[in-house]
Amino acid sequence: MSEQALPTDVRVVVNSIGLTKADYRGNPSTLCQGCGHNSISSQIIAACYELNLYPEEIVKFSGIGCSSKSLFYFLNRSFGFNGLHGRMPSLATGALFADHTLRGIGVSGDGDTASIGMGQFKHLLRRNMRLVYIVENNGVYGLTKGQFSATADQGLELKSHGINPYMPIDIAWEALVGHATFVARSFAGDPKQVKELIKAALNHNGVAVLDIISPCVTFNNVDHATHSYAWGKNHETALHELSYVPRAEEILLEYDEGETREVELHDGSVILLRKLGRDYDPTNREAAIKVLEEANSCHCLITGLIYIDPNQPSMWDIFQLTDTPLNRLKENQLRPPQETLAELNRVFQA
């Protein structure tokens, strides 16, 4: 692939299959500057590049939302299908049966997954389809302009929607109780961890859920933010039209394993990130449940690989399909011979 002759004076960095980073790129993003979703796209690109995957062997899927739009901003050389709101799991399931040698990456939002798509999400998990399922979780409906999503914290106050009176849905928790065989959580501002988790997920034989907290820099809670973050958003919003989308920087942070960090988000709220320690065993389901429950009671977010079961058969394994991808089978493999129909007719005949 990509064997174009290059000018000798240009040094091009390629991976071990001879592809450059550019071979993994997508179209320029039209999401807001500083949107967490953009940094996740970058890490998908980095992970695939570093894993030496041919883009042609990856298929992208999404539902509807800002998050789902981001599909267009990475891996242009991969096929992609931006489907319906909340219904990416079924789309991916059907499509991936066409060629079992491909890897699927699905991108969804918290609205797309935890509200309209909860049913399909849960059923994707129990079927264990081989798909990396990334939820770009910002606690709001970005694309429809800032309504509460089902993952929004109880008591969270948003400018035009008041206080959220309901309990949140925890996607990692849902994934775990739904028998997902790979459950991870990360923060879009921690690119290294995001990338490492995507790499692990791409290598998982089954469904891999990545719940990535991905701040929405636009629909935040500026009016009530008492803590200011060094980007002056409060001031800017007050000065501009309502439809103005202020520039913001991505939140970047680095922290060590086992450490707990307080992170102030764009809306002024605070999340706690605690990295799981080195002694944590992600193959122990009970421990995973415990760690999520503990995190819940101390109002912090656990990031890292929470659970993995590498031994469950994937949906493909169950179906015992031909080695040749189904979509390459020829007519003689698909249309049974004429004698078989004659035999059937005899059975139905007088």
Binding site: F61, F81, G83, L84, R87, P89, S90, L91, A92, T93, G94, A95, L96, F97, A98, D99, G119, Q120, H123, F319, Q320, L321, T322, D323, L326, N327, L329, Q333, L334
Partner: peptide, 28 residues
């Protein structure tokens, strides 16, 4: 080995999603 897949979906929303995905992927 099988040359077909039959999936009992969780509802018709998913049944058609799967069928559309498969049709897009080049399957009948």
């Amino acid at each position: 080995k099988n040359t077909y897949v039959v999936v009992q979906a969780e509802d018709e929303l998913a049944a058609i999603g799967m069928a559309i995905g498969a049709g897009w992927g080049g399957l009948r």
